[in-house]
Computed example of a mutant assay.
Amino acid sequence: MLLKGALHIHTTCSDGDMNMSEVVEIYAALGFDFIAITDHDFLLPRACQESTIYDQQSGLIIFQGLELTIFEKGYLHVNKIEGDREVLHIFNHPSELDLPVEKVIQRIEAVARKVPLDAVEVTSKGFYTAEYDISEIRYPKVATDDAHTRQGCGRAWIEMDCKASKDSIIRAIKRGNFWNCFNT
């Protein structure tokens, strides 16, 4: 089954402008099959951590996630996205570190010693950052839109051919069985 998904979305539970209902409505209207809500760990109130009601009402597969803050020579972000049994960790927005690529690779490898990284973003706010889509970064590279506002939704996403289940989607990403897409 061909699936379209967004792996990095923020809501009003942290620093996004859209509440959960708005996010679900927007991504469903854009033809997405799955989304990951990844609000910031240090801003997230416990009351915001439940999305199953939206899952059932929208038909979207909704992953619960967190954008983790990890200290490694500065603050870095890693999305932790939970499936039913599987967990996916994505190193976020390397281009926003404002470092040479070699230094970013060093940061990625240092973070990988702290959390089990599975992928690295090759976008910044949904715009392609080709300098990180290189073989020296040994992880699958994912396109995300890191949406905080309605205007940021649907700029970049992944597509894959797999079973429509959380764990199947995560396993496909970990294996690199997807392709990146961008809204021009």
Rank of each mutant, 00 (worst) to 15 (best):
K4S: 08
K4T: 11
G5D: 05
A6F: 05
A6I: 09
L7V: 08
L7C: 07
H8G: 05
H8V: 14
I9Y: 02
I9G: 02
T11L: 09
T11W: 07
T12Q: 12
T12R: 11
T12K: 11
C13P: 02
S14Q: 09
D15V: 09
D15Y: 04
D15I: 09
D15C: 12
D15A: 05
D15R: 00
G16Q: 04
G16S: 10
G16F: 04
G16D: 07
D17E: 15
D17Y: 05
M18Y: 01
M18Q: 01
N19F: 00
N19E: 02
N19S: 03
M20N: 07
S21G: 15
S21W: 01
S21Q: 08
E22R: 03
E22D: 10
E22M: 06
V23F: 08
V23M: 05
V23I: 15
V23L: 11
E25G: 11
E25L: 05
E25M: 09
Y27T: 02
Y27D: 03
A29K: 15
L30S: 05
F32A: 03
F32D: 02
D33Y: 02
F34S: 01
F34Q: 00
F34H: 03
I35P: 00
I35T: 04
A36F: 06
A36C: 15
I37F: 10
T38E: 12
T38Y: 12
D39T: 13
H40L: 15
H40E: 12
H40K: 04
D41H: 10
D41K: 04
L43N: 11
L44W: 10
R46T: 14
R46A: 14
A47C: 11
A47V: 13
A47E: 13
C48N: 08
Q49N: 11
E50L: 07
E50S: 09
E50I: 04
S51Y: 08
S51W: 01
T52N: 12
T52P: 02
T52A: 06
T52K: 07
I53D: 13
Y54L: 05
D55L: 06
D55R: 05
D55V: 03
Q56D: 13
Q56R: 14
Q56K: 14
Q57K: 15
Q57I: 09
S58W: 01
S58I: 03
L60I: 12
L60T: 03
I61C: 10
I62A: 10
I62Q: 03
I62D: 01
Q64C: 00
G65T: 06
L66E: 05
L66A: 07
L66Q: 01
E67D: 14
E67Y: 07
E67W: 06
T69N: 06
T69M: 05
T69S: 12
I70R: 07
I70C: 02
F71M: 03
F71I: 02
E72Y: 00
K73R: 13
G74N: 09
Y75N: 09
Y75R: 11
L76T: 04
L76K: 11
L76S: 03
H77M: 10
H77C: 06
H77N: 12
V78L: 08
V78T: 07
V78Y: 01
N79E: 08
N79V: 09
K80D: 04
I81W: 02
E82L: 13
D84W: 08
D84I: 14
R85A: 14
E86Y: 13
E86S: 14
V87Q: 12
L88H: 07
H89T: 06
I90C: 04
I90H: 01
I90L: 13
F91I: 06
F91A: 05
